[in-house]
């Protein structure tokens, strides 16, 4: 699959939802914990060497699972191989919680579900479709029917 690295690098320079130096260990056997700058931008998690401007890698946060890992860390794995984990170590319980909740909200699919939920609730309460009032009720990405239960 072809993708443009420069495009992703440009995205990694955008303001982050969350950014911190964390311990990170890749999913490969025998990999060790390394200090990385980890940056959440839109639905991508970028990781950098602490002395470099360009990221070493990016994780697309769609269809992923965020798991709390003891003592104070979390892991990210993806549905096609849930055992293959990227592990992160935080410096406190609090920081860990912050990352977990930010990462769980970071997917586009999650945003879409939230939108459909709000749209439904508002319609139930007020009898009006809020998106119709915004003039965007026809957009495919906001349709209730496009979501599978």
């Amino acid at each position: 699959m072809r993708y443009n690295e420069k495009e992703l690098q440009a995205l990694s320079r955008q303001p982050a939802e969350m950014a911190a130096e964390l311990g990170m260990r890749g999913p490969k056997k025998g990999s060790v914990v390394k200090r990385r700058l980890v940056k959440l931008v839109a639905n991508f998690l970028f990781y950098f060497r602490t002395d470099e401007a360009e990221p070493i890698g990016a994780l697309l946060l769609e269809h992923c699972r965020i798991t709390r890992e003891e003592p104070s860390g979390f892991s990210i794995s993806f549905v096609e191989d849930i055992e293959r984990k990227y592990r992160f170590e935080c410096c406190s319980e609090e920081q860990c919680q912050e990352w977990i909740s930010a990462l769980r909200r970071a997917s586009y699919e999650f945003m879409r579900r939230s939108l459909v939920f709000y749209r439904n609730e508002i319609q139930k309460m007020t009898g009006k479709d809020p998106l119709e009032q915004l003039g965007i009720s026809e957009e495919a990405r906001f349709q209730l029917s496009s979501l599978k239960a």
């Binding site: 360009e54 993806f78 549905v79 096609e80």
Partner: peptide, 12 residues
Amino acid sequence: MKLNERSVAHYA
């Protein structure tokens, strides 16, 4: 630069 390509393709 690495990307979790397998997961991205799976999502696609």
